[in-house]
Design a protein around this nucleic acid. Structure first.
Lengths: 159, 159
DNA sequence: CTCAAACACTTCAATTCTGAAAGATGCGAT
DNA sequence: ATCGCATCTTTCAGAATTGAAGTGTTTGAG
């Protein structure tokens, strides 16, 4: 991003590049971190989104409906139907219509799904720490705090 | 992300969630910012990636080859071939084989492509500033500096 | 009570991306 | 000079996503 901002400075003197510097860096950092996460799961024969769904259910510690999971993963409802189809086929989660509200489809971890997610959790956290190893713990905390404020102002809500 | 980290704290006491807090927030911020950028361009009848390619050429102020553009956009070479196909069809860029190295395909802005990118640039920057309006200028600078360091440690290189 | 509107999910067509294979070109060691 | 390997682009098949349409369910205003 440094070269990019330099180029704008030369090509469009006077253009305020501070916002572009932030948005562009968030975007690039996200893609690079995502690649690092994906590479780690591929080593274990799992897709990153598979772990994502399992981990969401594991930490919620209860069944969740399709909408909850779609919101947590920030994908469309159609995409989530597809993902759950495959996790059910793999025996990692179960689908069941809610008794209370028959519109809801409740997704629950199977014993194997719970075990798998639990087994991979520590390795995943270690991998994320490796990806962030260029920052000191204090810098990570500062970064998290700034992003937290940004997310809040963007109206982010999870589960 | 706050609820998510809370949930991990409850479901897995002792798990170090600091890395997850950073990686997760970068990812969510990126998706939300991307949506905001995309929404702005859709109002002007343009895809975000179209502006992205045009802006890359505009700021470089010279022709670029396919690899350069693919790297800048962080997409595969196949995806870029498809994108340039459509920009050529729209008359916004031209394709030409390099004289110096006949493996290279040089992409150049047409007059219309240059005009379009220039016209949309200020509005785009204003939109990004709006998306970041929850942070003070000092906070944006701090955020940019931390992300810059992170990108550096992740081996990011642009153009 | 009834019916329209809101809601949750699935299905489907269209779009887009990735990764691999293939074709063309350039480069360097021998 | 030449051969082998690397580089650059395109093509293509497979995978995944989005957004809209369709189905079934609930809610609440009248």
């Amino acid at each position: 991003m440094d070269k990019i901002l330099e180029q704008w400075g030369a090509a469009r003197p006077g253009l305020d590049v501070s916002a572009m510097g932030v948005v562009g860096r968030v975007s690039r950092a996200s893609r690079l971190l995502e690649r690092g996460v994906k590479a780690h799961f591929e080593e274990h024969g799992l897709e990153a989104w598979e772990f994502d769904v399992l981990a969401t259910l594991l930490r919620a510690d209860r069944t969740l409906c399709m909408s909850d999971l779609a919101g947590a993963a920030m994908v469309s409802s159609g995409a989530l139907t597809n993902r759950i189809d495959r996790l059910v086929a793999k025996g990692l989660v179960t689908r069941a219509t809610s008794e209370d509200n028959r519109r809801l489809v409740l997704v629950t971890l199977t014993a194997e799904g719970r075990r798998l997610a639990g087994d991979l959790l520590d390795g995943h956290v270690a991998n994320e720490e490796r990806l962030l190893s260029g920052l000191t713990p204090a810098e990570r905390a500062e970064l998290a705090a700034l992003l937290r404020k940004l997310l809040c102002s963007l109206g982010d809500t999870d589960l």
